[in-house]
Amino acid sequence: MPVFHTKTIESILEPVAQQISHLVIMHEEGEVDGKAIPDLTVPVAAVQAAVSNLVRVGKETVQTTEDQLMKRDMPPAFIKVENSSSKLVQASQMLKADPYSVPARDYLIDGSRGILSGTSDLLLTFDEAEVRKIIRVCKGILEYLTVAEVVETMEDLITYTKNLGPGMTKMSKMIEERQQELTHQEHRQMLVNSMNTVKELLPVLISAIKIFVTTKSSRGGGTEEAERNRRFTFEKMSAEINEIIRVLQLTTWDEDAWA
């Protein structure tokens, strides 16, 4: 049984995956051997119509999206789904001639599995595009964090804090929504932990910059230590955001492969 890494994908694919598994088991155990398969022309026609709509909508998306990876990854999934749909049509034609046909049964299993696989590919492609949107926001924050090094006055610090705040809020909201969407408990926890650390470190960083600015303007020494302190907090925050980016790209399969 495949394991789906988001709740949306799971809710869409789990019912069909379960039914395919049951039918495959029934066939493997010979439970349906020697039994006629009824005329499937009507339900197969419904699948064919749904596939043709899906591919039409999908192709329009490929044409309009600016996401180059989505442009690349979607067409093979359309082909997979279309070929599988053709197999189901062939199977229903074979069954009309012979309701006991063994090759037709194999075509039904292959076609159903192919559609599950193709639709799974499509949903994953979309999910990866969503993840890339979150990663772009995280990278924006990573980039802006480096500006901390050039903050030398209190005025700069106010601007810096003002600019960093909305991005942080956006990132935090996106990570919160994403962790709720994940089915893998460990990945959810890793995102929550890293995001909490980043949020806790934000006032620490601002305070470290403030101490650096004050120390530098007072010319009383201690600038190097203040700088080291600021760098330490900045590096810790960057490491946590990089960890968030890494975890966002994990799927359950990665974890299984790793295990």
């Binding site: 019912p15 039918l23 749904a50 909508v57 999908g58 999206t65 639709t119 499509l122």
Partner: peptide
């Protein structure tokens, strides 16, 4: 649990429609 081919094909058609809805929603 007994599953028939008709049931599976109906589920497949519904699944494909749901995937299409996902594409339409996320695209918008």
């Amino acid at each position: 649990l007994r599953v028939s081919w008709e049931q599976l094909l109906t589920t497949i058609a519904r699944t494909i429609n749901e995937v299409e809805n996902q594409i339409l929603t996320r695209d918008a």
